[in-house]
């Protein structure tokens, strides 16, 4: 057990390095940072003509960039986490080592979480500092809720989806195509719109409850100027549904790996 934990930690550590040394994650983080900077500047310039609630809720504006990026871009960017082993030809070597595919998968998943969350933590601090500098104050509770619940929740759910869903694919291209197809399908299936209290909405991989709540609802909650049909309860239900999704997909991938290991060849 101790060896397995060490192996998982070690795989996660190197996965963080591999993701940060690749360009995709870095570009995504820089894009979020730049967009946050631009919205902060624009809002600070026009703050006189805006409702007071929105001024202190630049965090909610920043969320528009973060939420959409985490919903649509993150799963695509990290979709090659497992398939790249096969594409680089490392899979064959890993299969000769005394480590199970389940351990490798878990290590990689945790590594992706660590890589993405560490980047977002830096962005959170910069955004907070920027808000303080430009607006003179920060609504700490809404700021922390957006980052700690909304952002972290989205990373865990859609990051997990981006790693696990394409884990059985043989190469990067097929992994990316699969993830994009699932996201497009999720969007298409929501033709009648997203509704609070609907299971379809909670289980939708785009996570509409989380995105919409922090985009509009949090401003209403903390600033009193905007309204949203989604509530904090919807956010937690969406996170719960997403975790169920992850467990089901994770078990399916783990089962596939075990089956593949037992009938290798």
């Amino acid at each position: 057990m101790k060896l397995k934990l060490m192996q998982i930690t070690h795989i996660a550590r190197y996965e963080v390095q591999l993701h940060w040394r690749g360009r995709a994650l870095l570009v995504m983080m820089l894009a979020i940072l730049v967009m946050n900077g631009i919205t902060a500047l624009v809002m600070s310039q026009s703050s006189d003509s805006m409702p007071p609630g929105l001024v202190i809720n630049h965090s909610a504006m920043a969320w528009a960039t973060i939420g959409v990026t985490l919903a649509f871009l993150l799963p695509v960017i990290i979709s090659d986490t497992v398939p790249k082993d096969r594409q680089f030809g490392v899979r064959e070597l890993l299969d000769t080592l005394p480590v199970s595919r389940g351990v490798v998968l878990l290590g990689k998943l945790l590594g992706v979480y660590a890589a993405v969350l560490s980047g977002l933590a830096v962005i959170m601090l910069i955004t907070g500092a920027l808000d303080l500098l430009l607006f003179g104050e920060v609504n700490v509770s809404s700021f922390l809720e957006i980052w700690l619940v909304g952002t972290t929740g989205m990373v865990i759910l859609n990051g997990g989806l981006g790693v696990l869903l394409p884990a059985t694919q043989p190469n990067r291209r097929r992994a990316v195509v699969l993830v994009i197809a699932v996201l497009i399908l999720s969007f298409a299936l929501s033709g009648s719109g997203f509704e609070s209290g609907s299971m379809d909405t909670y289980f939708n991989p785009i996570r509409p409850s989380i995105i919409m709540y922090y985009l509009t609802g949090v401003a209403g909650t903390f600033g009193g100027s905007a309204v949203s049909q989604f509530t904090r309860e919807d956010v937690w239900l969406s996170i719960g549904a997403g975790l169920v999704e992850l467990v089901v997909i994770g078990l399916a991938v783990w089962g596939w790996s075990r089956w593949h290991e037992s009938r290798a060849g």
């Binding site: 101790k2 060896l3 060490m6 192996q7 070690h10 795989i11 190197y14 390095q17 591999l18 040394r21 690749g22 082993d85 680089f88 030809g89 490392v90 899979r91 064959e92 070597l93 890993l94 000769t96 080592l97 005394p98 480590v99």
Partner: peptide
């Protein structure tokens, strides 16, 4: 293996360290 694959963004030392712990050198 006949065709060994490597992680291009790891250094030689890091790659060996990575494989070592997977082999149980804790």
């Amino acid at each position: 293996p006949q065709e060994l694959g490597l992680y291009p963004n790891l250094t030689g030392r890091e790659f060996l360290d990575y494989i070592a712990i997977l082999k149980g050198v804790t």
